[in-house]
Structures are given as structure tokens and as C-alpha cells.
């Protein structure tokens, strides 16, 4: 009988933990005044902002809704909206 399979986690297996449920506010990417500065991708603590060519979005499965992307966006093309069910 095997009680313990491994004593280590598989690389990147934390993706099974969907931290999106922590969120109270979600970032909405307006795609209007974006200047392609790439800052939203760089400053996301979870690294879940993606895209290119002025079209960026966030993986809402993991976004914790901290709001750094909206705060740091130099042209305010990202807004935070209250999460409603």
C-alpha cells in the first residue's frame, strides 16, 4: 500500500488553485486608449494579464482583484468594477 505518492509538488501545479474566487472587484480592459506600454503585464502580481497589439485581458480564473493594473495604467484604459453575482 502506498500512502504517500510524492513529497514534492509538480512544477506549476498551483494552477489547480483558482484564486479568482478571492476577488471583490474585477479589472475591465476598455481597449480604447491603450498605448501598448505593456505595464499591466509587468506589474500583475499573479502574472495573469496577457495580450499584445493594444488588446490585453486578464485571466479571471486567477485574478485576485488587487487593482494594481488599473492604478498603474498611464492612460486609465483599465477600470475596476464591483464583482456581482
Amino acid at each position: 500500500m502506498q500512502t504517500t505518492k510524492t513529497l514534492y509538488g509538480e512544477p506549476g501545479s498551483s494552477v489547480q488553485n483558482k484564486t479568482g474566487s478571492w476577488r471583490t472587484e474585477r479589472p475591465v480592459f476598455l481597449h480604447k486608449t491603450c498605448t501598448d506600454c505593456f505595464l499591466c503585464v509587468l506589474v500583475c502580481p499573479d502574472g495573469v494579464v496577457f495580450g499584445s497589439n493594444k488588446i490585453y485581458d486578464v485571466d479571471l480564473d486567477y485574478c485576485k482583484g488587487c487593482g494594481i493594473c488599473a492604478e498603474e495604467c498611464p492612460v486609465k484604459d483599465i477600470v475596476m468594477e464591483r464583482e456581482v453575482k
Binding site: S13, S14, D46, V49, D59, D61, Y62, C66, I68
Partner: peptide
């Protein structure tokens, strides 16, 4: 490129339990 593959290149994967807004 508009797909989530880009986030898979990060050496630290999402889903970790750091607080929201962790520096």
C-alpha cells in the same frame, strides 16, 4: 497573440496564495 499561453511562460505560476497586491 491573444491567448493565455503567454501567462504559462511565467516562471512563477498563478494560483499561489500570496495576498492580493503582493509586491
Amino acid at each position: 497573440m491573444f491567448d493565455k499561453e503567454m501567462t504559462e511562460k511565467n516562471s512563477v505560476a498563478p494560483g499561489h496564495n500570496a495576498c492580493s497586491g503582493c509586491g
